[in-house]
Amino acid sequence: MSEKDKFLGEFEQMTMLALLHLENEAYGAAIRQLLAEQVNRNVAIGALYSTLERLERKGMVESRLGEATAQRGGRAKRYFKVTAQGHSALKRARQAMDTLWQGLSIRHSLFQKV
């Protein structure tokens, strides 16, 4: 894995956190809706799958095909799950952000030291 692949972008982190929230029900439509409702990120399904594919290539998530339902025109769902490597990357990203946020607060749209 290259150095660049160890880091997660903002949308990658949001997507992985959505997978963790949805647990065993993390598939395209559900993830898209959760992101739209919880963080107001109304993304195209293609953008979401593009991110999930990239995360899968990095080894951060894995996918499996699930059941087909009538609501989906008889098409199967693809379920996604965060891997152990993904968990570590998320943890690392959070620690990095926490470290950088320490001693800062936002007041009147300005970043100030506390």
Partner: peptide, 19 residues
């Protein structure tokens, strides 16, 4: 346009939300 392995999943997700 979609990659073969994702056609089924993406079209299914879109149809579900469309309904």
């Amino acid at each position: 346009l979609l990659p073969h392995r994702l056609v089924e999943s993406i079209l299914g997700d879109l149809e579900e939300e469309f309904n």
